[in-house]
Computed example of a mutant assay.
Amino acid sequence: MWNAAIADALVKLRQNIVKHPGVLPHIIEGQRYEWGENNDWIEGFYIGMMWLAYEYGQDPFYKESAEAYLANFKDRLERHVALDHHDIGFLYSLSAVAQWRVTGSSEAKEVALQAADVLLERWRPQIGIIQAWGLEDDPENGGRIIIDCLLNLPLLFWAYEQTQNQKYYDVAMRHALASQKFLVRGDGSSYHTFYFDRANGNAIRGGTHQGHEDGSTWTRGQAWGIYGFALAYRYTKHEPFLETSKRLAKYFIEHMPEDNVVYWDFDVPVEAGTPRDSSASAITACGLLELLEWIAEEDSSRQGFEEALGRTMRALVENYATTDIPEAEGLLKHGSYHVRGDRAPDDYMIWGDYFYLEALVRLEKGIKGYWYVK
């Protein structure tokens, strides 16, 4: 089952590379991608898919295709193109770190370390957070974190492992602790975002940017939390991170709909046409795979996580994958970007494609993605 899904994914990835040489996918409505320059937060996912494809089948086409983009990502760093945000890890863990890990490239390692330094510039010591968006004096975002940032922290943990510079570790650890304290609610649900007073660091309130409302639980945010805290545990062995990931996962599983692929927010009224977010389910599958590496066989939660993983992946492969659309550029139907903002509420999401493929190759061959060194 996984083999056939992977084979279809690799055919579509190859088609995209051949059809759109030298450019990168952007989200646009209409069940397609818009291909253009490296100037958003999402381009790393496409390169990460190439590295997964190469590791899976050892076809040099994918390796050479991925390597050809390194200069592009290096140039983006040097010119600081659209990098006033925290998503540096999404961009460079899946491009430069991945290339270094697979090939040992010293140039890729240097690019990745430069990217980690750019991410460090977003550290706000007076608050104890990595600022999500905008410049430090931004009146709206100057004191804001969002749960997505947990998947950017592996770049800093990796940089610490390579350099032994304690600042990388300390910043990532402190941000993860702040995320745990302020973004995770008592019932295991999560806020998308949290605001602090940028002058004195005082906590103000939780809220949302892409969820249904401030008190609701945006499903993709919950997915970032599951995977992100599990990865934070891998790097730190701080037991509360593992327990937090488990709590978030239990909440996600308990609120899955009958067809096992979630809607875009757990609290949105469900009616005909309510958008799904297949990308949230794909991210969660990867998070469950990571969690299962750390949960003992005798742990009472293990069976439930294994069953939910199987149900999720079968649902994605059988009902949401584009295996019935040979010309499709995306791998998963019914992803949502920013429903609240009416931006691509039901389309292909390149991060959904990446995490879907990551989960498939991890299930099939134990290939674990590029959030840490093997």
Rank of each mutant, 00 (worst) to 15 (best):
M1T: 13
M1Y: 12
N3I: 00
I6A: 07
I6V: 10
I6G: 04
A7N: 15
K12L: 03
R14W: 10
Q15E: 13
V18F: 11
K19A: 15
E29G: 14
E43M: 06
D59F: 00
L70K: 14
L70I: 10
N72V: 13
L77I: 04
D84H: 08
G89T: 02
L91G: 09
L91S: 13
Y92S: 06
R101N: 12
R101C: 01
A112K: 03
L113R: 10
V118F: 15
V118A: 14
P125R: 03
G142L: 02
L153Q: 11
A159C: 02
T163R: 13
V171Y: 06
M173N: 14
M173G: 00
R174E: 15
Q180Y: 11
F182M: 12
T193N: 09
T193M: 07
R198P: 12
R205N: 05
T208H: 05
T217F: 01
Y227A: 04
A232P: 09
Y235P: 12
Y235G: 08
T236V: 04
P240Y: 02
E258G: 14
E258Q: 15
D265T: 02
D277I: 01
A282V: 04
L288H: 04
E290A: 02
E290L: 02
L291Q: 10
E293W: 04
E306S: 07
L309M: 10
G310C: 10
A321I: 00
T323I: 14
I325R: 15
I325H: 15
H334W: 06
V339C: 09
A344H: 07
L360V: 01
R362I: 00
Y372G: 02
